[in-house]
Nucleic acid binder design. Sequence first.
DNA 1: TCAGCTATTCAGTATTGCTATATACCAGTA
DNA 2: TACTGGTATATAGCAATACTGAATAGCTGA
Lengths: 109, 109
Amino acid sequence: MGKQVTEMLKGTLEGIVLAILSGRPAYGYEITAWLRDQGFSDIAEGTVYALLVRVERRGLVDVEKVPSEKGPPRKVYSLNAQGREYLEEFWRTWSFLTERLEQLREGGK
Amino acid sequence: MGKQVTEMLKGTLEGIVLAILSGRPAYGYEITAWLRDQGFSDIAEGTVYALLVRVERRGLVDVEKVPSEKGPPRKVYSLNAQGREYLEEFWRTWSFLTERLEQLREGGK
DNA sequence: TCAGCTATTCAGTATTGCTATATACCAGTA
DNA sequence: TACTGGTATATAGCAATACTGAATAGCTGA
């Protein structure tokens, strides 16, 4: 996928994961697989787990341990009220950035 | 401006600065002032200089020292062929990311 | 028993933006 | 002269975040 994406993901991957969780609860392995499916071809395994630990520690998600038929128990994360608020702010920040970049892109033509 | 923007800028600020330079040559102080004017209210002074040093070292820009009437000489940067190529790639990466996020935003409603 | 998929965790590294500070040139002014 | 303030660049150390690589663990089927 390349270094450019890696650096761009800093700050946005968190929003991406929270946005996924806003749709439905999910666990790390599942999220990673989904991201890869969506074209984030080489999201590192450990990256999503580390991110989930961070957002949990900051109180943006709730966690529930659920047994799996196929392996060790899953840690299922769901977005809570504080997380939804944070996600709202993320979208506002994202909009700000996209607007500025769109202007630059237009201007550069 | 907040921490969210700071993290999101990692990886995009470089593209932003290169996009500015694709329009016209510019120097650090000028770029910082312009960014602040555009709403990146607390871009740190040193940040742009450090970034310019990096892109210069990677051969994406050409530099010319130009005397100033108002202070020490300016280092005027301009995007070269390699930089234009890199900027193209940046836009492709950016498009990829915005598409994915737009989908997520739609889906989350 | 072993390979392979599912599932999580963690130590160490690289990149990048911020903080804080230093340096330097020039004009106006007390 | 000395000082303030705007212009202009540079850099050392810090913080946040994604990646690398490896370890651990449960389950299924050959």
